[in-house]
Design a binder for these strands. Sequence first.
DNA 1: TTGAAAGCGCTAACAA
DNA 2: TTGTTAGCGCTTTCAA
Lengths: 332, 332
Amino acid sequence: MKPTIVDIAREAGVSIATVSKAIHNTGRMSEETRKKILTIMQDMNYRPNMMASALKGKSTYTVGLLIPDLSNPFSSEIARSVEDRGKELGYSVVMCNTDYDPEKEAWYISVLNQKRVDGIISASGFQNEDMLRDLVEQHIPIALITRDSKTVAVDTVTVDDFMGGYQATSYLIGLGHRRIGTIVLDLDNGRERLRGYKHALEEAGLPCDEKLILSGFTKEDGKEAAAKLMEYSEPPTAIVAGNDLLAIGVMLSAKERGIIIPDQLSVIGYDNTILAEITTPSLTTMNQPVGEMGRQVMDLLYQEITGKKKIKKRIVMAPELVIRESVKPPLS
Amino acid sequence: MKPTIVDIAREAGVSIATVSKAIHNTGRMSEETRKKILTIMQDMNYRPNMMASALKGKSTYTVGLLIPDLSNPFSSEIARSVEDRGKELGYSVVMCNTDYDPEKEAWYISVLNQKRVDGIISASGFQNEDMLRDLVEQHIPIALITRDSKTVAVDTVTVDDFMGGYQATSYLIGLGHRRIGTIVLDLDNGRERLRGYKHALEEAGLPCDEKLILSGFTKEDGKEAAAKLMEYSEPPTAIVAGNDLLAIGVMLSAKERGIIIPDQLSVIGYDNTILAEITTPSLTTMNQPVGEMGRQVMDLLYQEITGKKKIKKRIVMAPELVIRESVKPPLS
DNA sequence: TTGAAAGCGCTAACAA
DNA sequence: TTGTTAGCGCTTTCAA
């Protein structure tokens, strides 16, 4: 059996209270006693049982991370950065793939609750805002990344999606594109980016053709959408995709039709995942500073957990256009 | 404060023992009492504190997953599949990015230990086999995926790396390639695949030129290695890479030199990650059945945890060649 | 400087 | 059918 504090105390010939103090380096005791206890702990390979200390009101030093789908590169980069910062702060992170399914969300929340995690980070938002509200009302520390809530005050780290959509679109406009299609994500983020897209068109005095606005999520969606767009009598000369996978779908579809990217069609992705650098041509895309975001969201949660901060904070980061090879001015 | 079992008991006018029985649906009591208790639990939004029950010797229903780097697509697919099966069996999974760093490994093991997880799955092996041995000796349920141990008996789920290296290489030989380079992973897996590679050459009566054997891990490594290989007076006509990222590095390097893949150079990757389908040309690669492997390893661990199985098991799966566009017969 | 003891929320053996 | 009670391993207050 694993040694307990009692075993250590017995072995050291002291009381468990003294051992506890030695573990946490608190209280005062003779150097001698402390050393002796520490040595014995070492020898017996003693690890304090966190369950027990958590029971006494201490933290569990564990947080939950709700994420749409870990096998998606953007998600997994977020997970990685959150975990990295968590580790630095001494927290373990439990991963939870929600697939945007409200039932899974509810299940995970309930489990995390039973495990008395110190806090929760969600990268998948809450399909059901009531759940978020409950959590906040129960004073469970929570922070969102890449997502926001319209109705609940909560810590968030997001990227300015409006600006992202705007920048991507006006970059194309600046290059001379006049007919620009877009494939939007069916999420709040997507809607904001769409607003940015529309704003850029408007600002340039360009009409907004609703037929050029499609939606989707996966590579296949991208293929389908591109196919549709390219069959129009007046096809777009450029497409702004809601994520890199969609953009790749567009590229694949173009290839099938013998349309050359970027000469005959320009494409911009979103997220700057690892995928963007390995396509041919490589993908111009909007970067979200994932590493920094993960770090920040964990920090926010940490402050919330340790009670260092009472006011909810929203951190908004700027997206950044990463220029590669998939965009060119249109054929005049 | 969160309600405890005492609150429920008081509210229901029964003892905590009765509540406990109601929670676990054990023992016998009148339907009436049970219903009443359940309703009250519902109303007060009561969630049993897992810390407390774990302290009483119950499981924590949590396992740790040691993984090299979650931002690597192959890793994250493993993580996803393990988590999926874990969820089905009622387990949460704590993620731990080791980066193959023995210190991180040790740190995570210690933390997981303190948190009294029910078991550990490692996809990153153990740089330090002693640590594995300790774990096994302490009867901590553990299972490895994609890794194996020469000296410790432990549950494992692996893919036959020898066969993978052999298949990839003999596929190329069958197509007429005579000079085949390889970039091996600097891991046990890599060494096994290298053996397979050599065996295929030998079987075909081809010489094995040590100069054609390089090693690496990242896209950049792949680029460098390819550059080196292609500068030989007698460059290889095909390259077997240790993973998809290396293969992509090779493709990039070839592109820079104006070498056309697959016409002038064939490339085979390994892992069949999402990357393989989006390169141009798409990548022929060895598939590892990640989804099935994750499921199996979680099942093995589960059996170990629940004591349903005493004997250690190794499950070896067959890799599978996925033919895409990056391979062609050599120019005569 | 050290220790005794209460109690965190729960389970399970035993008693009523 | 229901309740009493002794811990699980630990922290912390108070006393010695």
